[in-house]
């Protein structure tokens, strides 16, 4: 969110409230304020089609509010009449008659001259995994499989540390170039990839997922994403060709260990 826009706008609306504006001005302020919020207040910017949709809903809502009871309706009628007729509003009336067409013209000009922008690549963040994959000829149940070395964490600390260390070596030979030294998805080659490599330090990635899900994404990569979870785009390779089953489980242990995150617990099969 762009606070440089949102905060002054909210303050302006609150200030306006104290001035006890007429209902017409108040509705106009709401309309304008919401437009400014949607157009400039949200980062990254919303597509204009979305803004159009929200503004249409807002216009309908404000119209409903304004016409909901006779009081407001008559107040609007009066303000409208005063705006159109009374001398004290004349500069505003003539001003708007000049400014609005200028804005319309400017907008038309800008649309005609704007450079085309490549369509944004849609991306399903965590596509639904298949229930089962075939890994080097062996069937693995993605819904039920668990990391075979996870249990060592409680039982045999030294053996567990060994697996984490093994995963660490694999990470720095294979993954670090894109996912980075801090696992923030900002490795040496990340600037050449779109979408950016996953940021494992972020609480919405591996912390939300089961270890078996990571196994599937590492083993099958971008090419292994199912068609029904389109649209997707991923440069993630299928590591099945390079890494063995145990190596993938090791590297998964390392991802959680390094970031200090915990995998999502396996749901109990009913």
């Amino acid at each position: 969110m762009n606070f440089w826009v949102v905060v002054p706008m909210v303050l302006a609306l609150i200030g306006l409230r104290f001035l006890k504006p007429g209902i017409l001005l108040w509705l106009a302020a709401w309309w304008g304020g919401c437009f400014i919020f949607l157009r400039f207040g949200i980062l990254p910017p919303l597509p204009s089609s979305i803004i159009g949709l929200f503004m249409a809903i807002l216009t309908a809502a404000l119209a409903l509010y304004g016409t909901a009871d006779a009081d407001k309706l008559s107040a609007i009628g009066k303000s409208l009449r005063a705006f159109l007729m009374e001398r004290r509003f004349a500069p505003w009336l003539w001003g708007s008659l000049v400014v609005i067409p200028l804005l319309v013209g400017f907008n038309a000009y800008r649309q005609a001259t704007s450079e085309a922008v490549a369509p944004a690549t849609g991306r399903t963040i965590h596509p639904a995994p298949p229930s089962e994959i075939t890994f080097r000829g062996k069937k693995i149940d993605i819904l039920k499989a668990s990391n075979p070395f996870r249990e060592l964490e409680g039982k045999d600390k030294a053996a567990f540390a060994g697996h984490v260390a093994g995963g660490r070596a694999i990470y720095y030979k294979n993954c670090v170039f894109c996912h980075g030294d801090n696992m923030e998805g900002d490795g040496l080659y990340s600037h050449g990839l779109d979408p950016q490599p996953a940021n494992f330090a972020d609480p919405t990635t591996i912390a939300m997922l089961q270890e078996s899900y990571l196994f599937w994404r590492i083993a099958k990569g971008g090419p292994g994403l199912p068609e029904e979870s389109a649209p997707w785009a991923s440069a993630m390779p299928a590591w099945e060709a390079t890494l063995g089953e145990d190596e993938i489980w090791d590297v998964i242990l390392f991802l959680y260990s390094f970031t200090g995150r915990k995998p999502r617990a396996q749901e109990r099969a009913e």
Binding site: S96, L97, V98, I100, P101, L102, V104, G105, F106, A108, Y109, A112, T113
Partner: peptide, 18 residues
């Protein structure tokens, strides 16, 4: 040139407002 259509739109808006 994109100026003519833009000017036409502006004039149309002005006419409607007036």
């Amino acid at each position: 040139s994109p100026i003519l259509p833009a000017a036409a739109r502006a004039l149309a808006a002005l006419a409607a407002g007036a």
